[in-house]
Computed example of a mutant assay.
Amino acid sequence: MEKILTVNNLTKKFKRIAVNNISFDVEKGNVYGLLGPNGSGKSTTFGMLLSTINPTSGSWTWFGKAGTNTTTLKNIGAIIEQPNFYPYLNAEKNLKIVAQIKGTNYQRIDEVLETVGLLARKNDKFSTYSLGMKQRLSIASALLNNPEVLILDEPTNGLDPEGIIQIREIIQDIAKKGITIIIASHLLDEIEKICSHVIVLKEGTAIYSGTVDGMTSSKGYFELKADQQDELFKILESSHLFSNVTVKGDLITAYINEDISATDLNKKMVENGIYLSLLVKKKQSLESQFLELVKNNA
């Protein structure tokens, strides 16, 4: 798959090391999450990749070309800080000013407002907008130049649950159009619901880069119930298919060691005279995978 961005050994030192020798790739058409707590180096990384912060060392390429120049920036839409919209102007007039600054025409204004669900409010003053609407207008402004890549730094920060859902749905709709998206966030739930890939930062160091599902070697687990609970537990515990089996109340959890489908496991249980009243196969949550990853890199 075509690589949009390649980062090699990127480092930034202020009084301390903010970003420490990180490397990762971003492939076209995917949604990437830059995941880490506040102070882990997410915004500094974006700043270097957009040439607003000078790196101490390291290199990167956008679209196969070294560094970030004016031509490159025309293919990138970014929200690193809240744009300074004029509160006394409506959305349309604010976006006309952004279009002038970016050197683009006004033809896409209605289209991007429709994308973020603000077309019906385009004649309303910015000062009347809620925080969520202001953030959606920011995304619209980043889309004006029809970018190949969209960079969003903490796009749901400070929003209520409804606002978070709206931003998430907008990002998913934008991704369906083939735009590559890179999101910085400290929210595990946000990354899990939106992103296909993740780069995990801890104190400026990338401790994982890859698919969300591949963060650990875990194959997931089964949740099971049966009237013959003791017999079910013994069979599961003695099987090489499971690394660990636990019981809580009437629910048995079996952590998968060697992958098996729910259908095949059910057949095995029937062969042993066990008839299951519950059989659900689940993946570990991103939270549990993240905690395991951080623990292993302590």
Rank of each mutant, 00 (worst) to 15 (best):
K3P: 04
N20S: 13
N94E: 00
Q229C: 00
E190P: 15
K281T: 00
N123A: 01
S277F: 05
L143A: 09
E114R: 15
E258K: 13
G214V: 09
D160M: 10
L10W: 05
K234M: 02
I17V: 11
K248E: 13
K234Y: 02
E203N: 15
H197Q: 15
G178S: 07
I151C: 11
G158V: 07
H240W: 00
L265W: 08
E287N: 13
G29S: 05
F24S: 03
H240P: 14
N9R: 05
K15N: 06
Q289I: 02
N90T: 06
V116S: 02
N20C: 03
I199K: 02
N30D: 11
K125R: 08
G64W: 09
F85N: 09
Y221Q: 06
T115R: 11
Q166G: 01
L119C: 07
S217I: 02
E169T: 05
V112Q: 04
N90R: 04
L159Y: 13
G273N: 00
A262T: 07
R168Y: 10
E237F: 11
T128Q: 03
T11D: 00
G64Q: 10
N266S: 14
T11V: 03
E114K: 15
A175G: 03
L265P: 13
P161D: 03
F63R: 02
K15Y: 06
